[in-house]
Computed example of a mutant assay.
Amino acid sequence: MNSVITLMLFSLKRYWNILGKRNYQPQRQNVIVIVPGANLLLNFEDLKRASDVIQKAKVVVCQLEITPTVSLEALKMARASGVKTLFNPAPALADLDPQFYTHSDIFCCNETEAEILTGIPVGNLEDAEKVGRMLLERGCKLVIVTLGAEGCMMISVEEPIPKHVPAGKVRAVDTTKFDLKLVLILECPKVLVKRGVTVLYCT
């Protein structure tokens, strides 16, 4: 339905799906509270069942809203098959397994996550650049640090000069949805969803 592939979607009795609630501060900055629920039941056997889907995907996107070792294994499976990987370390872990850096083609974090990972508070573009360089040293290929209303900072091994991408002003309608077009525009600009691109999103 709506061109969403539900091949690997399963229903479990007596377990709820992940619950996420956004609370907004006076400055309109959001604070997200997450209750993982059934997400923590995703395991290595589930990954094995999804191996064919992973191997044929264009991009595999992972976060830490499932067990970190399972998310890391998904990234490894994707990289072994030549599939591009995008990792968002949310919710962030100070002791994140170093392999997450080396198995992510794109490592995308926000200011809070960046500080947890590196110990560097991100209050401006210069701080974001410091974080980006540190993450590159840990093995990342391309780092994106999102800066809320200030846009984002990008830095990569191939383009070591940081690039600031400002955010345009928009009227927020719904801030809770993840937009897969971000992945397609960033890594597959010539490929459209309607052409049957498979994207596995591990949250």
Rank of each mutant, 00 (worst) to 15 (best):
N2M: 13
V4T: 12
I5W: 12
T6K: 15
L9Y: 10
S11E: 15
S11P: 01
L12A: 05
L12G: 02
R14D: 14
N17F: 03
N17G: 15
I18N: 12
I18C: 09
G20N: 04
R22W: 09
Y24G: 05
P26A: 10
N30S: 15
I32Y: 09
V35K: 13
L40K: 10
L40T: 12
L41C: 09
N43L: 05
N43F: 02
K48W: 05
A50D: 04
D52G: 04
D52R: 14
I54H: 02
A57Y: 00
A57E: 00
V59D: 07
V59W: 04
V61C: 03
C62M: 05
L64C: 03
L64W: 01
P68I: 02
K76G: 00
A78N: 07
A80G: 01
K84F: 07
T85P: 03
T85R: 00
F87W: 06
F87E: 01
P89M: 11
A90G: 04
P91R: 00
D105W: 11
D105Y: 10
I106K: 01
F107K: 06
N110W: 06
E111H: 08
E113G: 00
A114G: 07
I116E: 08
L117H: 05
T118Y: 06
I120A: 05
P121I: 10
V122F: 08
V122G: 00
V122Q: 00
G123T: 12
L125R: 13
E126L: 06
D127G: 08
A128L: 05
E129N: 12
V131R: 06
L136E: 10
G139V: 10
C140E: 11
V143Q: 02
I144C: 13
T146V: 04
L147W: 11
G148F: 10
G148Q: 05
M153V: 15
I155F: 11
S156A: 07
V157A: 15
E158C: 03
E159D: 13
P162G: 04
K163F: 02
H164I: 09
V170M: 11
D174P: 01
T175I: 13
T176F: 01
K177V: 15
K177E: 10
D179H: 13
D179Y: 08
L180E: 06
L182R: 11
L184F: 03
L186I: 09
L186G: 08
K194A: 09
G196M: 04
T198E: 14
T203E: 12
